[in-house]
Amino acid sequence: MFNSQRLFRFKKKISRVINIMKHDYRTYVGGVIILAIFISAIFAPWLAPHNPYSTDVVNRLQGPSLNNPLGTDSVGRDILSRLIYAARPAIYVAVGGLSISVFFGLILGLSAAYLGGIIDKLILFLFDFIRAFPPLILILVLLAIIGPSLISVIIILGITIIPRYGRVVRAETLSEKEEDYVESARSLGASNFRVVYKHIFPNIFASVLVLGGMDMASMIMWEAGLSFLGLGLQPPLSSWGVMLQESYQYIQTAPLMIVWPALAIMLTMLGFSLFAESLRVALNPKTSQEDRY
């Protein structure tokens, strides 16, 4: 009975969140942009009008035309096709990096809260250590150590964001641990694993979801930035950052070329942050269903 009541409350909470989000324009604008990125990542071969790697030096640096809707780059590749294909590394980095930071954040945060004592202190120190560096500079140094590639970008971005999740998980676990219902579940003989799975997870789920939406955006942003500096993904791979880097040299002669990947990155950031913002507002218990904005 205890359990079904909690399940009922959980379901009610979710339907309340969905109800608030349904009436928020940010949900739709953000959702459409995120959906568009996922669709172009999955269906790139069918959506792209040309092969993103086939060069055509005669028609280099062309403006928009019927054949190349957004023009061609410095070796005559179709910019639109490259933009569409570039959604793939962006999604790899966002999903891969987030999985790493959420996974280790959960493990470290839970261990810190449950084991306490010296282990708690050590884990907190590890988090503070990672946060002691300016984020970009830590990423640059780590990339210099293991060398630039898609995998290393995913791993490093994941590592640098672990403390955010670790701290949230630790704080929420500590406060949930003191709640009466967790105490009573324990006194009934529930194992640590069961307590975490049944009681702690549903409670930290909301915070992790909001943070995750924003961090997916910031990982896509970092990936493009690193590739722009030449320390992330490497040409000729199609990535928005690589495209920025390639077209930066032509910024004086063909300025339109750099605008397309820049717009793609901006839209992506905007989409993820709009959606995360609408989620945050809806999850905030202070937001009533009447005043939604």
Partner: peptide, 23 residues
């Protein structure tokens, strides 16, 4: 403010160069 808050620094730099320097 929402749009500017989600604009990466390098995008802002590139757009400023394209708009105010080049054009």
């Amino acid at each position: 403010s929402f749009i500017t808050a989600s604009t990466p620094t390098y995008i802002a730099s590139v757009l400023i160069i394209v708009i105010f320097s080049v054009n």
